[in-house]
């Protein structure tokens, strides 16, 4: 941190990186789950729709034929489920998913 004059230039200079707010997936109460049987690009097996990717505030959904959600950071707002024209995304309670995982 020392510059050529020996003055330690401590100042608030931040560097870009993910997860400044931690694993924001832990904020989630409801988890968006994509039904690939209904999802337009997955069903047609070609680039289409991608509205979940477009509207996701946190950019945690991939723009891919089988869209994937990064649950590490997905805050669970549910905009994707609300905007999905095919009704392919359902919001599932995290407690249910956790209990299923326990079994």
């Amino acid at each position: 941190m020392n510059d050529k004059n020996g003055f330690a230039l401590k100042k608030s200079h931040s560097e870009p990186g993910p997860g400044d707010g931690g694993r924001t997936g832990s904020w989630r109460v409801l988890r968006p789950v994509i039904d690939l049987e209904k999802c337009t690009p997955a069903k047609k097996n070609k680039d289409a729709c991608f509205l979940c990717w477009l509207y996701c505030p946190d950019g945690v959904i991939t723009k891919s034929i089988r869209p994937e959600i990064d649950y590490e950071y997905c805050k669970g707002c549910g905009i994707c489920a609300e905007e999905c024209p095919a009704g392919a995304i359902t919001m599932v309670e995290e407690t249910i998913i956790i209990m299923q995982g326990d079994q």
Partner: peptide
């Protein structure tokens, strides 16, 4: 939507509220 770039300039895991409108426009 199909030809809009996939390149992202905002990292996930930030402190914006869930469902924040600003996050959509900023991104």
């Amino acid at each position: 939507v199909l030809n809009l770039t996939e390149e992202e300039f905002v990292h996930p895991g930030n402190r914006a509220c869930s469902g924040c409108g600003l996050s959509i426009i900023y991104r």
